[in-house]
Design a protein around this nucleic acid. Structure first.
Lengths: 137, 137
DNA sequence: AATTTTATTGCGAACGGATTGCAGTAATGG
DNA sequence: CCATTACTGCAATCCGTTCGCAATAAAATT
């Protein structure tokens, strides 16, 4: 789905800050912090104010176009995706990547079956060393 | 282990703020936010300053006496415990509870076997409705 | 027990990321 | 092309947390 259709559908305008934030998030191959997004947007257009970036992120989150995760100290953003992945956060370089894992679906089924807690979202965060940094140790 | 031995061992002093924070965390049956800890401590002794509570939490974290988790908006604190549990955060009442699940160990084994990412900590956060709140819906 | 040492506290100021109010701007519908 | 008003840029503000410092009190020493 394009940004334009997503915004039009929800009766919002297509503006430069929104396009730039969208582009930055989709060009990134990993999660970005709010500060990183602001910096990347400024590289493309220094005139965009950081509060517009924050407002855009918050709007996108409401529209479920992006997903915010809080791992460790800071929160990071990425384009929305389905739940069946886990997050690998590298202790050394800080990069957050995805990893497909069936444990998420397994867990959801187990929880539903056990009947107590009604799961909505499942977030699996693993910290440690990514392949690149592990080799350097 | 008592607080006194843990502090003595690491060459720290046993003080009133530290005792109170410790008591509050151990009396709580769920995770607490920093603000909740400050409030609970003030109930026992209004004279304890909130910055001392923050300093105590940070010290306890260094000594691995407590564990900080960041789920959703705010970070919460609890006495340290082993990794093989998942966190259930209720969307309605906000309570965070534990749930034993073998998926954590399963995942750790899978990751190690796959050889890429070197896992250190694994944090599974499930949001949804706790049994009590689910009934009220 | 009194004294010394210095880790720890309470206090207020400062910090930094995020939010907000407002006047000006620009995106959409007609 | 104009009118409407959602959205922006800006600066001020907020709020949770951290920090510097003088005062305090916990532990060591006598």
């Amino acid at each position: 789905m394009t940004l334009e259709t997503a915004l039009r559908r929800s009766d919002h305008r297509v503006t430069r800050p929104r396009q730039l934030v969208w582009d930055v998030l989709h060009d990134a191959e990993r999660h970005l912090s709010a500060a990183e997004i602001v910096d990347a947007v400024h590289l493309l257009d220094p005139g965009v104010n950081s509060s517009s970036v924050y407002r855009t992120l918050s709007l996108f989150a409401d529209l479920e176009l992006v997903r915010e995760s809080r791992h460790g100290e800071l929160s990071t953003w990425e384009p929305a995706h389905d739940d069946a992945v886990i997050h690998l956060v590298c202790d050394r370089c800080g990069a957050t990547t995805h990893h497909a894992a069936d444990v998420v679906d397994t867990l959801r089924v187990q929880l539903k079956r056990s009947g107590g807690f009604e799961p909505r979202t499942i977030d699996v965060a693993v910290t440690g060393l990514c392949p690149t940094c592990a080799k350097r140790t």
